[in-house]
């Protein structure tokens, strides 16, 4: 089955690993991701802070490209892109005049008839399907996962249909249960990690991350599982900082859900996370993922 795929900017940059893993895992599931031709930035949260019109117009262009592929569904792994695109689609539906006005400038116009899905919505559906059942599973030992969803998966700045429980989402738990990874109930699965404010309001963001970390530790988790590239970047790359600031001794890995799925599907550790056990070097790693620096 073919699905339209919008990776978003961060999946080509800081969260390149996520793009790599998503493609591998979906291929294994027999879902072919067809990347949108010449997609552009969706504006994420920043566009809405400066210019309301562009916050809708930027994702509208991508929606137009996606609709032109005639595929039934558009998959967006990045939580910020997913939220932005889904909200823009609903806003366009509710505001036909605006849709007309934006369409006038687009070479591929949008009429709002493609389903926008996050990676979790697709996986949740897939684990009950035949394609998933036909894959032999490898048991992953020793993990106790705290599933961390962040803001963007269930909370939207506009009234849209939410795919999961807003306060206590279950998609990741269900998917991980299906591959035999035990999960925990915990408090802060949808608490904000500070997102981009780690750049301009660092201290406040670090406090929030420490809160999340402390609760996960108190419940006995030994890894965090996320689907949002921003959450993953914050919780992992700032870990030393926020743990030191709040006197937390333990450290834990922060996995994309695709990494655990890949391992369960029998993809080797080296293939699903190239260079994961090598001494860290950004340049080397870029090459491994098949990209000229």
């Amino acid at each position: 089955m073919d699905l339209a795929y919008y990776p978003g900017c961060s999946l080509y940059q800081s969260a390149k690993l996520y793009n790599h893993q998503t493609n591998l895992v979906f291929e294994r599931l027999g879902l072919h991701l067809q990347e949108l031709d010449d997609w552009s930035c969706c504006g994420a949260t920043s566009a809405g802070k400066i210019n309301d019109f562009m916050a809708i117009a930027l994702p509208a262009r991508n929606l137009g490209i996606a609709e032109a592929t005639n595929l039934p569904e558009l998959v967006i792994p990045c939580a910020a892109c997913y939220s932005r695109t889904k909200v823009a689609q609903k806003q366009l539906q509710d505001n036909p005049l605006l849709q007309n006005e934006i369409n006038l400038e687009l070479s591929r116009q949008t009429f709002g008839n493609i389903k926008v899905s996050s990676i979790l919505e697709v996986l949740w559906r897939e684990i009950n399907g035949e394609r998933f059942e036909s894959i032999p599973l490898t048991k992953i030992e020793g993990l106790k996962a705290a599933c961390y969803y962040g803001c963007m998966y269930t909370r939207f700045p506009y009234d849209v249909e939410v795919a999961d429980n807003v306060e206590n989402p279950q998609a990741m738990e269900t998917v991980l249960k299906a591959i035999g990874v035990p999960t925990l109930d915990w408090n802060h699965k949808t608490l904000c990690c500070g997102a981009s404010s780690v750049v301009y309001n660092t201290e406040a963001a670090l406090d929030l991350m420490a809160k999340i970390m402390k609760d996960a530790l108190a419940r006995g988790a030994n890894c965090l599982v996320v689907t949002c590239p921003m959450c993953q970047m914050n919780m992992e790359s700032q870990q030393e900082k926020y743990c030191r600031k709040h006197g937390i001794k333990e450290r834990m890995p922060v996995y994309f859900i695709t990494e655990l799925l890949g391992l369960a599907f029998g993809i080797s550790r080296e293939e699903i996370h190239p260079g994961g056990n090598l001494p860290p070097n950004g340049l080397e790693w870029s090459k491994m993922c098949g990209d000229s620096v």
Partner: peptide, 9 residues
């Protein structure tokens, strides 16, 4: 850079 998150492409 150290965490393989900085890309020059």
């Amino acid at each position: 850079f150290r965490q393989k998150r900085l890309h020059l492409s």
